[in-house]
């Protein structure tokens, strides 16, 4: 052991001192989170550029490897697809006609209002949480790009998460599958209100849990679940997933269902962030 020198502190006392620091930090950040936010801010401002760099290298090598693998497959597929395209061209014209008709009808019914268009910006995901327990990821846009805490994050066509911490050039996003996530939603054709709970355990099987559905609601497997109008933080009408299974609760008042999320959380690299604030839309 090398603690015999006079200037060294005994590990016992060091442990005690650092434990006290930890406990103080915990208490302070629990009751007054803003006071210690600067520590996070400065540490993260050193780490995030490195992470972004590593992520870029990762994306680059990933794409090169994929390219090599895919060239042959693609050649085969290309031949096949070219033949198919001819068939589709015909169909497209048919659909275009139908679409024009649909738009006319929608205008008649003024349906557009229920699907409002939001302003969006794109961002890259550059890091995720470093344990196996949480579903938190970081995106490379922050307050300088008009992000704010509570902004909804979309991926493809589905809701991916919400910004929970926002810094100058990056933000922290909690995915809807995170255990702490809780969203007010409704089930589409029947308009039944419900809450979607993220649950790490059920997500291992690829599903999320939907709770508190009224037992009289007419819902079927495959119904679309979207964010509801009563949610304070989420814009209405964003797709979260599709119902996979329905079970009646033992209290005989509510139904619990599981949904398959619309977003593939195993493959998130680019996301869209809605830059409108919820209150401004309403």
């Amino acid at each position: 052991m090398r603690y015999d020198r006079k200037k060294d502190i005994s590990p016992k006392y060091l442990l005690l001192a650092l434990t006290i620091i930890c406990v103080i930090l915990m208490i302070v950040s629990f009751f007054a989170g803003e006071k210690v936010a600067f520590i996070k801010k400065y540490t993260n401002s050193i780490i995030t550029p490195i992470q972004q760099g590593i992520n870029k290298i990762g994306v680059w090598t990933d794409s090169k490897l994929e390219n090599l693998k895919e060239i042959e497959e693609l050649n085969c597929e290309n031949d096949k697809l070219e033949k198919e395209i001819d068939g589709y061209k015909e169909q497209i014209t048919i659909y275009q006609n139908k679409l024009a008709e649909l738009e006319e009808l929608r205008a008649l019914y003024e349906l557009d209002e229920s699907y409002p268009e939001y302003n969006k910006t794109a961002a890259h995901v550059f890091a995720k949480d470093s344990t196996s327990w949480f579903s938190i990821f970081y995106i490379d846009k922050g307050t300088n790009d008009g992000m704010f805490v509570g902004a909804n994050v979309m991926c493809h066509d589905g809701l991916a998460g919400i910004i929970i911490e926002c810094y100058d050039d990056y933000s922290k996003v909690r995915a809807v599958i995170d255990d702490n996530s809780n969203i007010s939603a409704k089930i589409m054709p029947s308009n039944a209100l419900c809450t979607i709970e993220g649950n790490l355990n059920t997500y291992q099987n690829g599903v999320l849990v939907v709770k508190n559905i009224d037992k009289d609601a007419k819902i079927t497997v495959g119904d679309k679940v979207v964010t509801s109008h009563i949610s304070e933080r989420f814009h209405q009408g964003l797709t979260v997933g599709y119902i996979a299974e329905i079970t009646y609760d033992t209290n005989n008042l509510t139904i619990t269902a599981t949904i398959t999320p619309a977003v593939d959380f195993n493959n998130i690299s680019d996301v869209l962030i809605i830059t409108d604030k919820k209150t401004e839309v309403d």
Binding site: L25, S29, F30, I39, T131, I164
Partner: peptide, 8 residues
């Protein structure tokens, strides 16, 4: 600093 909401 990176993932947990509270420090410690």
């Amino acid at each position: 600093c990176f993932i947990s909401g509270i420090m410690g």
